[in-house]
Design a protein around this nucleic acid. Structure first.
Length: 407
DNA sequence: CGTCCACAGGAATGACGGGCGG
DNA sequence: CCGCCCGTCATTCCTGTGGACG
């Protein structure tokens, strides 16, 4: 009965909270009714979906923008509004499906998801992909509808499963008698298009909509909009929103970051029994979020991934080449009494750390002196070292280093 | 203006362990 | 319980490359 308990807890929290009215509006998956500074993108997306209302297939659309620039929120918002508009006018010849490819990163799972949103049923395992595709075509054909399939974080699907599904989806309109399909691909990886078959690339890139990062002022507008709904009147001290916005603006204009900061700052204020959320709370929130993120990353990392991360932290958070990094890594494995992995593997580990967001790996060409990656920690090295202190295998080492650092 | 550095990163393969159907 | 498949970590071998240097 977790639901029943949740209702109790939520209700009590709401009633007793001196800070929040509704903290849900600050969560990353919340889709607001107003999306400041995305008017252009909303208008373009709507324009390209408009043919649906005339019973025509919209162009395939490719949406690109860094994390926290509103891609998913805008898409979901527009889809919802277009559906409402159609329903009000009795236009029902189209249907949307939404798939997040980070979680469903195989051809099978994406297809199964799409079929289900069409009202079909697919067992979660057991069928061949070809069979699922056959069912998909049959369901679509009998419904006679136009399907708009949204594939969010499409880069995960392409990296894991290639572009076969995309190729077939973009070509399926020739095979179908009645139903039609358009694809909306969403990604934050510019280079992903290069991995696609040229035919898929030109088909999927029929229309491109770019979401630029927000600047500090725009983030401020977004936060103000949400804060009104999230907080009790007057609990936010002067400058709190601006401070959140400025931190997030420095980190690539990520609205998700900004909202997280504001929410966690509120939670810290609440926990410590304060009546107001202050700039100091935001500072603490930034540290807490960073700590949680580091602990989370470390937990999921393979053993040698941990060693590599520790090496980077011990070096003060930066290496100018992977070669130097690898030598230091070998030194550390010596001290730990562990067999090192190959440089090729460490290269992959660096990419992994980059994906997880603890480091940034920047490709640099130094001409005569070769090509390498510069690796920089995105968080405080001491946060990393401290987080390693209760690691079962290398904790003793981190504690030793931490001790000497504190003296 | 061609070389060649110091790697990037793709492809193939294997060891290992966990989950699952029969 | 077994055989099978799949995902993860890792190795080996490999081809590709921007630009400073000679």
């Amino acid at each position: 009965m977790p639901e029943a308990n949740d209702i109790v807890f939520e209700t009590l929290a709401k009633i007793s909270s001196s800070i929040f009215v509704n903290r849900e509006v600050l969560r990353p998956d919340y889709v607001p009714e107003v999306l400041p500074h995305r008017e252009e993108q909303i208008r373009r997306l709507t324009e390209h979906l408009a043919p649906l209302l005339r019973g025509e297939r919209p162009s395939n659309i490719f949406i690109y923008g860094l994390t926290g620039t509103g891609k998913t929120a805008v898409t979901k918002y527009v889809l919802r509004r277009v559906s409402e508009y159609g329903r009000q006018r009795g236009i029902m010849h189209f249907v949307f499906s939404y798939t997040n490819c980070r979680h469903d990163d195989t051809t099978y799972r994406v297809l199964a998801n799409i079929v289900e949103s069409l009202g079909g049923r697919v067992p979660f395992t057991g069928l061949s992909t070809a069979e699922v595709f056959r069912r998909f075509k049959r369901v679509l054909n009998t419904s006679g509808k136009i399907l708009v399939a949204v594939l969010d974080e499409i880069d995960f699907l392409i990296k894991r499963a290639g572009d076969e599904l995309l190729y077939r989806l973009t070509r399926i309109n020739d095979e179908l008698v009645k139903g039609k399909v358009s694809v909306i691909g969403i990604t934050n990886d510019v280079k992903i298009m290069d991995r696609l078959d040229p035919r898929v690339r030109s088909s999927l890139g029929e229309v491109e909509i770019v979401f630029p990062p927000y600047d500090a002022l725009q983030l401020t507008d977004i936060l103000k909009e949400r804060a009104v709904k999230a907080f009790r009147p007057g609990v936010l001290e002067e400058g709190v929103i601006e401070y959140c916005a400025s931190i997030a603006a420095k980190e690539h204009g990520d609205a998700r970051r900004a909202l997280d900061l504001l929410r966690v700052a509120g939670e810290i204020a609440e926990r410590s029994g304060d009546r107001k959320v202050t700039v100091e709370h935001v500072r603490l929130a930034r540290e807490e979020i960073e700590r949680d993120m580091v602990v989370d990353v470390i937990r999921t990392l393979p053993y040698h991934g941990k060693i590599v991360l520790l090496v980077i932290a011990l070096a003060g958070g930066r290496f100018n080449s992977t070669g130097e990094l690898y030598t230091s890594y070998r030194d550390l494995t010596m001290k730990l009494g562990v067999e090192p992995v190959t440089q090729r593997r460490v290269s992959d580990i660096i990419s992994e750390l980059d994906m997880l967001g603890v480091v940034t790996a920047k490709l640099v060409n130094r001409g005569r002196y070769g090509k390498t990656r510069q690796v920089t920690l995105t968080v405080d090295p001491n946060t990393i070292i401290k987080a390693f202190e209760d690691d079962p295998r290398i904790g003793w080492f981190a504690r030793k280093v931490g001790q000497s650092g504190r003296d």
